[in-house]
């Protein structure tokens, strides 16, 4: 079976992001493979390690710098990768169409996508890919077992969590708790350099045009009061209650 992990490269959570008049400025920012996508790569490795006969493929759609995240997934243990290289910022629906075409061509049966991506804060890509393929999906997945041609999963719902069974082929979006992703070892980082990384251009996949347009990006600058009290705990607590009641009028 072919298993595909869709991966993104995103700014490190600790990175300081600046805004300019033309949008956010990612110059000098450290980028990493999206932590949510790592769960997917890890899960595909574990499926193979527990006996599933599978080829593991990473696919990424984004600018040249994404190569680094792709290499990370190869160093973790994926077999090969496909990079559709573009500087264009395409919305998730359009991206999903492009990715679905490649998934179809590859004949994959299981696709992992990060549950919520740390650049767009978007949870749309996984379900949109599933819809484009006409496959079922499981979102916010925290546990997964493949048995024959079906999947048994546990996932987070609005009310708590529930178990689902779904037939393959299927898309699975990941969530914290699914697993603890491994760190690539040095020998595996070296090995990853020799693994196949196929490059495609957006024009190879039909040059889709996006459905949304980014107008502005601004850094959140809600100014805070920063009134910090010190000293005797009981006095400070009383004063805080008074401030919340009389000044902020929230309790």
């Amino acid at each position: 079976m072919k298993i595909i992990s869709i991966i993104k490269q995103v700014p490190d959570a600790e990175a300081r992001i600046r805004a300019t008049a033309s949008g956010i400025d990612l110059e000098g920012v450290t980028f990493v493979i999206d932590g949510m996508d790592e769960y997917g790569v890890e899960q595909s490795l574990r499926l193979r390690e527990t006996g599933l006969d599978a080829e593991l493929i990473s696919i990424a759609l984004g600018p040249k710098r994404f190569e680094e995240a792709i290499r990370t997934s190869l160093a973790m243990g994926s077999d090969r990768a496909i990079h559709i290289e573009t500087d264009e910022a395409l919305d998730p629906i359009t991206q999903a169409k492009v990715l679905a075409n490649i998934i179809k061509e590859e004949g994959a049966e299981l696709v992992f996508v990060g549950g919520k991506e740390a650049d767009w804060d978007s949870a749309a890509l996984g379900p949109a890919v599933a819809e484009a393929l006409g496959w079922p999906h499981s979102d916010w997945t925290t546990k997964l077992v493949v048995s024959g041609s079906s999947l048994s999963v546990t996932h987070d719902s609005d009310e708590g969590s529930e178990t689902l069974t779904l037939p393959l082929p299927a898309v699975v979006t990941t969530q914290q708790g699914l697993n603890e992703p491994r760190y690539p070892t040095l020998p595996n980082i070296m090995k990853a350099k020799r693994k196949e990384l196929k490059k495609l251009a957006l024009s190879d996949v039909g040059s889709p045009s996006g459905k949304t347009q980014l107008l502005r990006q601004e850094i959140q600058t809600k100014s805070r009061l920063n009134k910090v009290l010190t000293g005797d705990a009981a006095e400070a607590a009383k004063e805080l209650a008074r401030l919340l009641h009389e000044e902020a009028k929230v309790i």
Binding site: R224, V228, A241, R242
Partner: peptide, 26 residues
Amino acid sequence: FKVADYGIVGDVNDVVPALKEAVSSL
């Protein structure tokens, strides 16, 4: 504290029970 409007530097074991009392008696 950088994103806080109001804050107390203190041990939660001391501050929180006192805050609860103060809020209850508002």
